[in-house]
Design a protein around this nucleic acid. Sequence first.
DNA 1: AATTGCATCGTACGACGTACGAGTCAATCG
DNA 2: CGATTGACTCGTACGTCGTACGATGCAATT
Lengths: 232, 232
Amino acid sequence: MAAKRSGAESKGSGRTGESPQSGQEPRNEPPLSLERIVATAVELLDAEGIDGLKMRRLADRLGAGAMSLYWHVDNKEKVFDLALDSVLEYRGPPEVDASRDWRGDVVHMLEDWRASMLRHPWSASLLPRRALGPNILGRLELLSKTLSGAGVADADLNVAIWSLWNFVIGATTTRANFDLSDDDRTAAQQRLTGLSQDYPTIERSRLLLDNDWDGAFRKGLDFLLDGLAPRQ
Amino acid sequence: MAAKRSGAESKGSGRTGESPQSGQEPRNEPPLSLERIVATAVELLDAEGIDGLKMRRLADRLGAGAMSLYWHVDNKEKVFDLALDSVLEYRGPPEVDASRDWRGDVVHMLEDWRASMLRHPWSASLLPRRALGPNILGRLELLSKTLSGAGVADADLNVAIWSLWNFVIGATTTRANFDLSDDDRTAAQQRLTGLSQDYPTIERSRLLLDNDWDGAFRKGLDFLLDGLAPRQ
DNA sequence: AATTGCATCGTACGACGTACGAGTCAATCG
DNA sequence: CGATTGACTCGTACGTCGTACGATGCAATT
């Protein structure tokens, strides 16, 4: 197991913040911390994509040496875990007091979930193969509670949650990986149009050409919710 | 662009199969070919997982030098693309002539899809971020045709297909990455039970503990299909 | 003044993807 | 028949990556 800390918080250590004056370079960087590392990792991932995250580059951005990161983090995998979960925070449905319709709450949370991931497209391809962090578990718990409160039987709860989870995961990963670049997109379109005699129905339904991802997500989600809890 | 071949077929080159007798090592390996490379890549992926596929190891298994692969394949990414698509072939629904119920056909194809991917767990995490190969497109085309023939309006076709796609992708990627190892699994369970006061509803619904993945998939799919095309 | 423990980082190692160019061999052509 | 060509193989080498290891600095404690 790891000897270092890797799990402790660094809060409350009461830095004076005056010391790093040795006289040479303009190093006003605050000291390293898990929070700063994770935040910068998210920046880097946003800017350079999933393959753009290298420990050396991350350290550069932090004004630190590459190996300094390893005091705060076990390895690169943990950086991914933390960055992913940090992006999936959720602050609950808009309403403060009694949430009137559970369906609206569910849709709100899932659309927010999707939006959060699409704001950081790398997160989509990461989520399915990473550990479940607290923010993810929090969302699942909220979803469970809402559905349960809406009258979904415990026996169906499991299936209902997994179905919604599957839908969100599938939709976001697909979406996030379909518009990586316009080049890819137009190339794929051309290739597909060239293949349209092989796949006529796909062509006709404009399956891969339609750009209304948001609408498709919402409509599909409605269909799924209809199936899970028929209205009346 | 690539200078080599990378897209041509190697069939019909009519090897005599007698030549490689130079007298030293027991090298009875057949010559390299795209097919052999892809098949061996699948073997290696099955055995060692997604991180276990290295070009040198792949070449070793093929009894070839590492750089020999690059004559047949542009780069490692292409190996992934080809391995993925090769695993997703589909031979149609069981019935030969008139397929009686479209719903049965859809379920059969999607369950087969899921089964194919779970037989090769690495494929699940690969699918969302790779190009669409012919076998994938073939399945989508079949799905389109079936749904369209079942009376789904062209306007809804897009949403319907994406919803089903999302469901399959989400279900398989999640499933494939949740039982990588028993160690991981029991560790996660313990961690979760320790956290059960934070997530009581998850705990109660046995969300992460229930092992009936197949049943959950089937039931969720039924719910979704109910929503997409209400029975009567 | 000496000790301790947190934190940083330079160096180095092994593994990886793959560019490059030399090599082999069968088929083709004069 | 020898020369040429083009399909195919592979050894070497380069640059980059994650990270093990140990030295170093520095603040708080003794």
